[in-house]
Design a binder for these strands. Sequence first.
DNA 1: CCATCATCCTGCCGGC
DNA 2: TGCCGGCAGGATGATG
Length: 271
Amino acid sequence: MPELPEVETIVSDLKPVLVGRFFVGLTGTHKNSISGAIDNIATIKGGKVVEVKRRGKFINIFFENDYVMTIHLRMSGRILTRDLNEEQLKFERTRIDFNDVSLRFCDVRKFGKVWISKKSEYEKVTGISKLGLEPLNNELTVEKFIKIMNGKKGTVKKWLLDQSLVAGIGNIYADESCFYAGVRPDARMEKLKRKELEKLFKSVMKALKQGIKNRGTSISDFQDAYGQKGRNQELLFVYGRGGQKCLKCSNTLERAVVAGRGTVFCKKCQK
DNA sequence: CCATCATCCTGCCGGC
DNA sequence: TGCCGGCAGGATGATG
């Protein structure tokens, strides 16, 4: 599923493709995917793209004309760049056309969404306003991380996944971060000592940066804007490896449900 | 205040 | 081989 590194990969692909292009139209074969966009389609026609930016797991395409197109891929969404005359793709829910390129929003599970809203209100409309700190633009320091997480009642995994604290971490990177930190995902956050919180912070950063460096984790069919797979799945220690041997100590990895999500960890390496 | 559950949706996997 | 139940899961909202 697309998390921060996957969305970052897509955004870095889209930027050179879209900036300077003009919006032509948006058509949806699945209404729920574009419910937030329909009213404003006409408003941004002819609008020039000035910037493409990620915030948490959201993609934002900024137009010169004071509007923003926002996309959230949720579970199974993909954005693929195609020629305008290319036929409809499998699971294509929405196509977003620019003067000489077409974005195809493909989404098996139909959870993803597209919005078009005014710059002055897009954060409210899309839910971006509820997001917490960005991990990778120096907004999130170790001190801020400790301040945010320290004393939170509940499992470590639950708080790592909470987008209103730190934006962008999902199931894959939460499990990998916990492994790096030597902390069980079902450990209580309020019981972590300062040293452990520091280690957790470094682990989150390491996991996310490594994910970006390797252009995302293609374990559940993630693809970048050109349909290419990432490489980060080759570097996972725990996610998706329940029942297999720990790569560090050869112990059999545990599988459990934590914070309502499938979770894998090593009982020996993580406390 | 907290956790858990249902919802949305459909491909895929295991069991029989 | 084929059918079917159940699972996966980001985010939100309802329920215990």
